[in-house]
């Protein structure tokens, strides 16, 4: 039953994009779309964990506000210096499937202040950020993180 639900979720996702691209709701169009969605290989959809995925998708909706806020933050830094920090993976990304891991990476890289450059080990991201060199205690900040 859960597998069937997962399959329906993937089909719904593909049909959403098909309807967005073709932008029409005629019967023949929808039938062609369903045929194409069934023809594309499914991969290992049995490993999809539903609850972490939904939580991560809901967190993604907060992105536009963060985006505007962090770009103004970056604009007001006049004397930038680089620095690497480490950031833990969220528990949902660790326990969930590959897609929720990707969403975790996407949320950090999409905002202008932080840029993920790789995995330090299996539990921490290596994150690049920009500091302002005029603030006195930035070295302490880098160390403490």
């Amino acid at each position: 039953m859960t597998n069937f639900f997962r399959l329906c979720l993937i089909l719904l996702f593909r049909m959403t994009f098909w309807c967005l691209v073709t932008a029409s709701f005629e019967l023949t169009n929808i039938l062609i779309g369903i045929a194409i969605c069934l023809l594309i290989p499914f991969g290992d959809f049995r490993k999809l964990k539903l609850y972490p995925l939904i939580r991560e998708t809901l967190l993604t909706l907060r992105l536009p506000f963060d985006m505007i806020k962090e770009s103004f933050q970056l604009i007001f830094i006049s004397d930038p210096i680089d620095g690497f920090t480490k950031q833990k993976l969220t528990s949902r990304a660790k326990s969930g499937s590959r897609f929720s891991k990707f969403l975790d990476l996407f949320r950090m890289t999409f905002t202008p202040m932080t840029l993920v450059t790789g995995l330090e080990d299996s539990e921490t991201w290596r994150v690049h950020t920009v500091f302002s060199s005029s603030t006195v205690n930035n070295e302490n900040e880098v160390d403490s993180k």
Binding site: S71, L74, P80, D82, T111, P112, L115, V130
Partner: peptide
Amino acid sequence: SIFYKLHTLTV
């Protein structure tokens, strides 16, 4: 550095 340029290109 290239990292700062990537940040501004994201903006």
